[in-house]
Design a protein around this nucleic acid. Structure first.
Lengths: 165, 165
DNA sequence: CGCGCTATTTATAAAAA
DNA sequence: TTTTTTATAAATAGCGC
């Protein structure tokens, strides 16, 4: 049943689309209900079935839906349009956060690259084939690995000494 | 990381609830977006964060949300309240459907019970310990298993004959 | 059509960092 | 506390009846 990874685009095949629609509508309403119960949040979901005049909703009661809509339309501090901070500092913050994340990713990628190189070496790749620029980082990785190994050996030793079973 | 099966009830622990809320709000908005894109459905989700005046929504644009709400409030054949059939026959139908489902479940459970008994027997439980009332069903299960085995043996034989690799 | 199944993907609870 | 990771539960695509 070779289920392929979801491509997020309009499903052209009519029947497939219908089936998916039914499944996902149920899923969505269920998720809405769960969020409401688990976290005590005011939440509503309204779905219009295509080519029909039928709307399905959660909560199911028309009254409750109207209450939530009413709140939405009348709350002064509505939605995300009204921030506690001005637009510029908000954006600055966002950019900084993204940069930090990117840096972490890069670091992580670099580590993984190094691990791959180590694996290649262990599999017989000659050290001469490693790019010169990688050698420094490689050394760092190897040192850190050595430290880990020594640390674990020490723990193991302590364990064996204290619990000589 | 023993994640237990979700108990659908208000999460008392404040921190747990907050974390769950953030995750599930994101999940819910994402599911809403996916349904909309995959199936081309008009759909919206509105969430009020607890203890705040902030609402998060999908679609994000206030204009689009208002459009969907407007539809909801003005469509004549709104929602499930307007059925094509009268209430009584609808309920009768529902009850019958549920009963059928229950019967199927019972049957399935019975099968699983029998399989457990077979397992116990194979593990050395004496046949005398099996309840008398179960013996008949047990025989049925065993016969069906035997048929399956014979069927597969047959297939295997055909395969070997046709493709004598 | 709608149900049930199952391989996979996705979501997420809880632990670790 | 927030973030990341990990392991498990839940959703669901594709298929057959």
């Amino acid at each position: 049943m070779e289920k392929k990874k979801l491509k997020l685009q309009y499903i052209e095949n009519k029947n497939t689309r219908r089936v998916t629609c039914i499944k996902r509508c149920n899923g969505l309403l269920n998720k809405t209900r769960e969020l409401s119960i688990l976290c005590g949040v005011d939440v509503c979901t309204i779905i219009y079935y295509p080519n029909s005049n039928v709307a399905v909703t959660w909560p199911e009661s028309e009254q409750q839906i109207k209450k939530i809509i009413f709140e939405f339309e009348n709350k002064p501090n509505n939605s995300k349009f009204d921030r506690q901070f001005d637009q510029k500092s908000y954006l600055t913050q966002c950019v900084k956060k993204s940069k930090d994340k990117l840096d972490k990713r890069r670091e992580k990628n670099r580590e993984l690259d190094m691990e791959n190189i180590v694996t290649d070496l262990l599999n017989g790749k000659p050290i001469e084939d490693v790019f010169f620029g990688d050698l420094n980082d490689l050394l760092t990785v190897i040192n850190s690995k050595m430290n880990m190994i020594q640390h674990r050996l020490k723990l193991l030793h302590e364990n064996t000494t204290n619990n000589p079973l």
